[in-house]
Design a protein around this nucleic acid. Structure first.
Length: 564
RNA sequence: UGGGGCGUCGCCAAGCGGUUAGGCACCGGGUUUUGAUCUCGGCAUACGUAGGUUCGAAUCCUACCGCCCCAGCCA
């Protein structure tokens, strides 16, 4: 499998190679994956996970899982747990306990005090709106906050009282004293600490009422953990001067290197956690693990394998350029994997009853079928065959529509996969003219051999009516009808939701062998696609299968082109 | 009109001064009891544009153009 091959290089690995060559960190490589537990992980996070854990593996280093939990307002324990589950499921190990930025709150506080003592941080009493005004804008410099001229003693006293819960939310913040005229907005005395009462932090409870900001927390947490390379996405590029400033201005002897790469965009979906949260909260999808979601949990439920997602991350590469990857790449990854790993089965999604009139009533044959056409190690199974079977309605037409059509037509023949050749003698219709069943005959001499004197081109799948397992099958399509749902800045991305993204098929007929499948099991339903059994059942106890992806379908493509 | 990035095939992406890897997609041929798989072949005189340096430039220099990010007490 391509995902297990040598990882291809990228500019970050080149930096690491150079650092190893120059013995910068004594040959050690330690990375970290630092999610904020305020949502479920998505395929974009998978890119970062594969990068960070992949590098750690290849360089015989390690990768920490560290929750960046400095904003208790938005975070909760459900997300802490789902994130760990998803990283594990993707196949990565962070060795021991997960880490939390909140583990370092006391140390972080001490570094803040150190900055204050050095005259490099001050307590500011401006309110949020004033801070914004004082900051200036992109083209005009900011102006100093009154607090900037506080004495060290005043700042120390105020900060201590902030911690001691003497002030309400928003009364004061702690700020770094850098440069209010800096062209980089991040350097205009960024906020380091804010006051937050009345929230219970999932790790520290009510121990703290001041919480450090990301820009303060991240570099120090990295340094505490001895991270060598701190990999993050492009939007943090102009936070790097602040990252470096902080580590240069406190007494810590570790200075990780921040390197930025571009985030993943995927066509026909959204990747921002804010937007995904909105879809979940507004009930526009069925939760974070809805199979249409680009979340790891959604992809898992859809039937994607960890290997296929790793392969995807490998294929898309790591660069600094903006990119929007086509869905076709993801689909190709899962097809590649499942093609070699999934058992073949037959399932009739849109059943049409077929009576084989020259087949003895009550007789049942057990036909043998390979579980994989190219891999004998998958073994074989028995498929019952009888007088009444189901085929898919799409596999029959009364009149042959064109000479390339090679499925069943009236007075025509077709091969039943793993079975006999049958001929359609008559299509029975109801009063409305809808075909209700087919009267056919079979050729007993065609089991495992081609008929004599004629060529039967088509092969269709089928299921014994008597032995079929009824199921619900869910067909998924892209979540959005537009390749880039958030293209128009003033429009609402929700307007582009695809209302055809889910089709539920009832009364599907599966071959007997699928009946024993366990939740999460994946199959190729021949000629249809790859399907995964859902953990849920229908109200009346019938199994539910989710379609992961269709098979590549050149015929559908040709038909599409003929129409268009 | 401040700062930081990015621009190589429809979409990703190698390339790091010596004459454009690869994958996806697409187009054709072969095998096939899945119109699948597999397989064979095709698919950028060209690297945002214009100049310059050089025997030689996607790679170096200059100037333009286009796109993305930054004005949270979010991360």
């Amino acid at each position: 499998m391509s995902s297990e091959e040598k990882p291809r290089s990228n500019f970050i690995r080149q930096v690491i190679d150079e650092d190893i060559a120059s013995n910068k960190h004594n040959g050690v490589v330690i990375t970290r994956f630092p999610p904020e537990p305020n949502g479920y992980l998505h395929i974009g996070h998978a890119k970062s996970i594969c990068l960070n854990f992949g590098i750690a593996q290849d360089y015989k280093g390690s990768c920490n899982l560290r929750f960046d939990d400095t904003n208790p307002h938005k975070e909760n324990i459900e997300f802490v747990e789902s994130i760990q589950q998803d990283v594990k499921w993707l196949g990565f190990d962070w060795g021991g306990q997960a880490l939390f930025s909140s583990d370092y709150f006391e140390k972080l506080h001490d570094y803040a005090v150190e900055l204050i003592k050095a005259g490099k941080a001050y307590v500011c009493d401006l309110n949020a709106e004033q801070v914004r005004e004082y900051r200036g804008n992109l083209t005009t410099p900011g102006k100093d906050s009154p607090g900037r001229s506080n004495s060290v003693e005043e700042n120390l006293d105020l900060f201590a009282r902030m911690r001691a819960a003497e002030f309400e939310d928003g009364k004061y913040v702690l700020r770094a004293k850098i440069d209010m005229a800096a062209p980089n907005m991040n350097m205009r005395d960024p906020t380091l600490y804010r006051i937050r009462h009345g929230v219970i932090h999932h790790q520290t409870g009510e121990e703290w009422c001041i919480y450090p900001m990301y820009d303060f927390t991240h570099p120090i947490s990295d340094a505490i953990e001895g991270i060598t390379h701190s990999l993050c996405t492009l939007e943090f590029e102009d936070h790097r001067p602040l990252y470096d400033w902080l580590l240069d201005n406190i007494s810590i002897d570790c200075h990780p290197q921040q390197i930025e790469f571009s985030r993943l965009n995927l066509e026909y979906t959204v990747m921002s956690k804010r937007k995904l949260t909105l879809l979940v909260d507004e009930g526009l999808v069925e939760g974070w693990s809805d199979p249409r979601m680009p979340t790891i949990a959604g992809l898992r439920r859809r039937g994607f394998t960890p290997a296929s997602i790793r392969d995807f991350c490998e294929r898309i590469g790591i660069t600094k350029s903006d990119n929007t990857v086509e869905m076709g790449v993801l689909e190709s990854c899962i097809r590649d994997d499942l093609n070699t790993t999934a058992m073949r089965r037959m399932a009739v999604l849109n059943p049409l009853k077929v009576i084989i009139e020259n087949y003895p009533e009550g007789q049942v044959e057990e036909l043998e079928a390979a579980n994989h056409p190219q891999d004998e190690s998958f073994g074989t199974r028995k498929i019952p065959f009888g007088r009444e079977i189901y085929i898919d309605r799409d596999d029959f037409m009364e009149v042959k529509p064109n000479k390339k059509f090679k499925r069943l037509v009236t007075d025509g023949e077709v091969r039943l996969r793993n079975g006999y050749v049958i001929r359609c003698d008559e299509a029975i219709k109801d009063a409305q003219g809808k075909i209700t069943e087919l009267r056919c005959s079979y050729d007993p001499a065609t089991l495992g051999v081609n008929p004599e004197g004629r060529k039967v081109k088509g092969v269709i799948h089928w299921v014994s009516a008597e032995h079929a397992v009824e199921a619900e099958v869910r067909l998924y399509d892209r979540l959005f009808s537009q390749a880039n749902p958030d293209a128009d800045k003033d429009g609402d991305f929700r307007e582009h939701l695809n209302d055809e993204s889910l089709h539920i098929l009832l009364g599907c007929q599966l071959e007997r062998a699928v009946g024993e499948a366990e939740a999460g099991e994946r199959f190729q339903f021949e000629r249809e696609g790859y399907f995964c059994k859902d953990e849920a059942q229908t109200a009346d106890g019938k199994p539910i299968f989710n379609r992961t992806v269709t098979l590549r379908d050149n015929w559908a493509k040709i038909e599409q082109q003929n129409k268009g």
